[in-house]
């Protein structure tokens, strides 16, 4: 097939340099951050030599350990809760006959993506304050798990719903036709075919919860420090490459999960 160069964006004048500038602006600061994690001296601005000692310092830092544990507990719990809720919501909004409120339901589930995070954070804070003062209920770290679960739902919902919409509903009917009860149809046909969508949902929900700062900062009680919060507290002290090393570890985990999400999403297409 002959390519028409006149409409191909790559052959427009200035495309190359513009693309390079965009990439540089996006990734240069991150590359600098990662580079100085390997700096031999205690400066984050003056390069003296290569070393991995700051990674060792970070990994043996007990506060960092505690924060990492909190983060894992919150993220894993929130991911499980959010993915289950999102799967149910996706089934409920696609595997039904067309009804009047369908678009409204879809919008309601996705709206938290548009709401400024600080507003979600402040409302979560006042909600838990109300819960504590009026009903004397304090779930401890459960508060954070609950808040994270809620804002992770739309992120998990999107890939699961997309997968369900791609799936042929006739397959469910074929299962029912072959004597499968609704539960068996779900277990043997719908769920296995939905797995790539659910896996993408899990990866997205985990990464969103893992990275969260704003909501956690407002809702977290004493001792409920997560990795992003811990790093933020370190920024206010004299900065050493230990911080860069921590950020690099976080970044690696994020990249790992995003890659998994993309890879699983592409499989079985």
């Amino acid at each position: 097939m002959a390519k028409d160069r006149s409409t191909d964006m790559r052959y427009q004048p200035g495309f190359g340099p513009l693309a390079m500038i965009c990439l540089a602006v996006l990734y240069a600061p991150i590359l600098v951050l990662v580079a100085f994690a390997f700096n031999a001296n205690a400066s984050v601005a003056q390069w003296t030599g290569f070393s991995t000692k700051w990674f060792a310092t970070a990994l043996f830092n007990e506060s960092f350990h505690a924060a990492a544990l909190n983060t894992m507990l919150i993220s894993v719990s929130a991911t499980i809760i959010a993915t289950m809720a999102a799967t149910a919501a996706a089934l409920g909004t696609t595997r039904v006959k067309a009804w009047r409120g369908q678009t409204a339901a879809f919008m309601t589930i996705n709206l938290p993506l548009m709401v400024p995070e600080i507003i979600t954070a402040v409302s979560a804070l006042s909600f838990f304050a109300l819960l504590g003062q009026v009903f004397n209920i304090n779930l401890g770290i459960g508060n954070l798990i609950l808040a994270h679960s809620v804002f992770c739902i739309p992120f998990a919902y999107m890939p699961i719903r997309a997968r369900l919409e791609d799936m042929d509903f006739t397959l469910d009917q074929a299962a029912a036709d072959l004597y499968a009860t609704p539960w068996m149809t779900f277990r043997r046909v719908t769920l296995p075919l939905l797995m790539p969508g659910i896996a993408s949902g899990i990866a997205l929900a985990f990464i969103v919860s893992f990275d969260d700062f704003t909501i956690t900062q407002l809702v977290a009680g004493p001792g409920q420090t997560t990795l992003p919060i811990y790093i933020w507290t370190q920024v206010r002290r004299p900065i050493t490459p230990e911080l860069n090393a921590m950020c690099t570890i976080l970044l690696s985990i994020s990249i790992l999960f995003i890659s998994l999400s993309v890879l699983i999403g592409q499989k079985r297409r």
């Binding site: 042929d168 006739t170 397959l171 009917q173 074929a174 299962a175 499968a180 009860t181």
Partner: peptide, 16 residues
């Protein structure tokens, strides 16, 4: 459908 002794060959086959 799962309570009927009736099976269908679908137009799109609908194989799993």
């Amino acid at each position: 459908p799962y309570e009927r002794p009736v099976n269908t060959v679908f137009q799109s086959y609908a194989l799993f």
